[in-house]
């Protein structure tokens, strides 16, 4: 008989959301189309919001509901919308080319996941929250998003990678400590929003200067 201890349904749901988050990061890592990338990012934000709401339900902490609503609004709707408008205005329709081919990226991704899980193992032992299992997943999605930033050479996917990393961090914070105080969360949300605007301006700057959004061209900044 396999040993399994029945846990409440909400907890099962939470595990599922965590797994889905990991899956989405992998999907982003393997995605060639920029629009799909943005959709995936929106999906990630929504699932993040759902998982926070779920943990609010599970732990009876009403302030997490606000946090979930904030996440949903900002990361599920506003930021993807902004990004979509941005690429519409920039007229970027190209597919994303990756620096390393996708199967290799995937393999590296699996290695990163194993690494992250083992990293999280000792931390998880200290933590007593019900979410400690998901800490490894959160860490893995941070690392994977980071890798996505490395393997892309266009500015927009890199920014999406950055935002996805932020999502992962947020999830890590929730799973380790049941979320941060409301003030901090609001501050972070504001930061992300501001960051997004700066990126937006930055994109236009890069394009105006180099006629391209390829960040590889920025290597020559010093020499030109």
């Amino acid at each position: 008989m396999p040993h399994w201890n029945p846990v409440p349904f909400a907890q099962q749901l939470l595990d599922l959301f965590a797994a889905l988050l990991l899956l989405i990061v992998f999907a982003m890592l393997s995605q060639r189309r920029i629009l799909t990338l943005i959709h995936l990012f929106a999906l990630q934000g929504m699932i993040l919001a759902l998982s926070i709401a779920d943990s609010a339900w599970l732990t009876h902490q009403p302030h997490l509901y606000y946090s979930a609503a904030l996440t949903l609004g900002l990361k599920g709707v506003i930021l993807p919308g902004l990004l979509r408008r941005l690429i519409g205005r920039l007229g970027v329709v190209w597919d994303v080319e990756t620096l390393i081919n996708i199967p290799t990226t995937m393999l590296l991704g699996i290695v990163l996941v194993i690494f992250a899980f083992n990293l999280a193992l000792p931390i998880a032992h200290f933590s007593h929250t019900i979410l400690r299992n998901t800490l490894g997943i959160a860490l893995a999605s941070v690392l994977l998003s980071f890798m996505m930033m490395i393997t892309r050479n266009k500015a927009v996917p890199q920014v999406i990678g950055f935002l996805a990393m932020e999502n992962g961090l947020f999830f890590a914070a929730t799973s380790a400590t049941y979320g941060m105080p409301m003030v901090v969360e609001l501050g972070v949300a504001l930061d992300v929003l501001v960051g997004m605007f700066i990126f937006g301006i930055f994109f236009f700057q890069i394009r105006d200067t180099f006629d391209s959004l390829d960040t590889r061209k920025m290597d020559h900044l010093g020499r030109d």
């Binding site: 399994w4 846990v7 595990d15 965590a18 797994a19 990991l22 899956l23 992998f26 699996i110 996941v113 194993i114 899980f117 299992n133 998901t134 490894g136 997943i137």
Partner: peptide
């Protein structure tokens, strides 16, 4: 493969 890893990680 991810499914197997998740099985190990989530301990379920």
């Amino acid at each position: 493969v991810l499914a197997i890893l998740l099985h190990d990680l989530l301990g379920t």
